[in-house]
């Protein structure tokens, strides 16, 4: 039984890259591109790990993270945040809201893979 990851990201090329990396490692990768319905998707897919981009159309990644941490069933869900802005204040913000891990784009494939593994086990 493969473990599942929900990738919330709007850049099609990045989605494809991460899907390839994780699928190869045996993960089931669901994707979602729209910020406004992202939390709904989390509830439906019940992934083991969520990979969440910060800049999304409709709703910011931070807001989605807040929803996740606020929900009773999703409060403890491991979330890996990705951001292309890479500024210190984004990292602080993410940690404050309760991101499990924070990673700046561009990332190394192995880093993402190991992070997802750790989060799923932890």
């Amino acid at each position: 039984m493969g473990r599942t990851v929900l990738l919330i990201e709007d850049e099609p090329n990045i989605i494809e890259a991460i899907r390839f990396i994780l699928s190869r490692d045996g993960w089931v990768v669901h994707t979602h591109s729209d910020g406004t319905t992202a939390y709904q998707s989390v509830l439906e897919k019940r992934p083991d790990v969520v990979i969440l981009d910060v800049m999304l159309p409709g709703k910011s990644g931070f807001d989605i993270l807040r929803d996740i941490r606020g929900g009773s069933e999703t409060g403890a869900l491991p979330v890996l945040m990705l951001t292309a802005k890479g500024q210190a204040k984004d990292r602080e913000m993410a940690e404050q809201i309760g991101a499990s891990r924070f990673m700046a784009k561009p990332f190394s494939n192995t880093d993402v893979l190991s992070a997802v593994r750790e989060l799923a086990e932890g």
Partner: peptide
């Protein structure tokens, strides 16, 4: 600054990921 960072990093993310692959 964050915008330009985002605009530069997003294509670079794809480039780096697929290059590694």
């Amino acid at each position: 600054l964050s915008q330009i960072s985002h605009e530069l990093r997003t294509p670079m993310t794809s480039i780096r990921a697929f290059s590694e692959i």
